[in-house]
Amino acid sequence: MTTATKTSAKARNRRMARMPADHGNNNEKIGAKKPAAGIAKAAAKPSETPKKPAKIELVLIMLRRAEGATLDQMVEATGWLPHTTRAALTGLKKKGHVISSEKMDGVRTYHVAASSNA
């Protein structure tokens, strides 16, 4: 048993995904993208405000303090969940930072002891 496709006079013309809507316009290349208008202006204008530090940099700053940082302090500062914050500490260890922790009065405090990236 073979299946045949039905063709009818009302069959719609199919276009390829990259074909432009106007088939007769040969002035534009198929698939060429136009640059966004705001990109050139934003790139030419120097930023007036300094960039806010990344969250991982904020965690490093907190860990470099003399008192270090608790997990709750890092969670509050970054807005991350506790397991994400612990994963970020693991990522810092993989990047060469030596992170130590101590538990005083039932609260664990983390410190950056040294780093090879200093």
Results as ranks from 00 to 15, higher is better:
residue 7 T to Y: 13
residue 9 A to C: 04
residue 10 K to N: 13
residue 10 K to I: 05
residue 11 A to S: 11
residue 12 R to N: 11
residue 12 R to H: 08
residue 14 R to E: 10
residue 14 R to T: 10
residue 14 R to Q: 07
residue 14 R to N: 06
residue 14 R to H: 08
residue 15 R to F: 11
residue 16 M to I: 02
residue 16 M to R: 13
residue 16 M to Y: 05
residue 18 R to V: 08
residue 18 R to K: 12
residue 18 R to L: 13
residue 18 R to W: 09
residue 19 M to H: 07
residue 19 M to K: 08
residue 20 P to E: 02
residue 20 P to T: 08
residue 21 A to H: 04
residue 22 D to E: 10
residue 22 D to M: 06
residue 24 G to W: 07
residue 26 N to G: 02
residue 26 N to W: 05
residue 27 N to I: 05
residue 29 K to Y: 03
residue 29 K to C: 02
residue 34 K to N: 13
residue 34 K to H: 09
residue 36 A to Y: 03
residue 36 A to S: 10
residue 37 A to K: 15
residue 37 A to R: 10
residue 38 G to A: 10
residue 39 I to L: 14
residue 40 A to L: 09
residue 40 A to Y: 00
residue 40 A to W: 01
residue 41 K to M: 08
residue 41 K to E: 10
residue 42 A to F: 04
residue 43 A to S: 04
residue 45 K to T: 15
residue 49 T to Y: 09
residue 49 T to R: 10
residue 50 P to C: 00
residue 54 A to F: 02
residue 55 K to W: 01
residue 57 E to H: 11
residue 57 E to A: 15
residue 58 L to Q: 15
residue 60 L to T: 08
residue 60 L to G: 12
residue 60 L to H: 05
residue 62 M to E: 14
residue 64 R to S: 14
residue 65 R to Q: 15
residue 65 R to E: 14
residue 67 E to Y: 05
residue 68 G to K: 02
residue 68 G to C: 05
residue 68 G to M: 04
residue 70 T to L: 06
residue 71 L to V: 03
residue 72 D to Q: 13
residue 73 Q to F: 03
residue 73 Q to E: 15
residue 75 V to H: 01
residue 77 A to N: 04
residue 78 T to R: 00
residue 79 G to L: 12
residue 82 P to L: 10
residue 82 P to W: 04
residue 83 H to D: 08
residue 84 T to I: 01
residue 85 T to K: 03
residue 85 T to A: 09
residue 86 R to K: 15
residue 86 R to L: 15
residue 87 A to T: 12
residue 87 A to V: 04
residue 88 A to F: 00
residue 89 L to G: 04
residue 91 G to V: 06
residue 91 G to S: 06
residue 92 L to N: 02
residue 92 L to S: 09
residue 92 L to H: 06
residue 93 K to F: 00
residue 94 K to P: 00
residue 96 G to P: 05
residue 97 H to F: 15
residue 98 V to F: 01
residue 98 V to Q: 11
residue 100 S to G: 14
residue 101 S to C: 09
residue 104 M to A: 14
residue 105 D to F: 04
residue 105 D to S: 14
residue 109 T to M: 00
residue 109 T to F: 03
residue 109 T to I: 15
residue 110 Y to A: 11
residue 112 V to G: 02
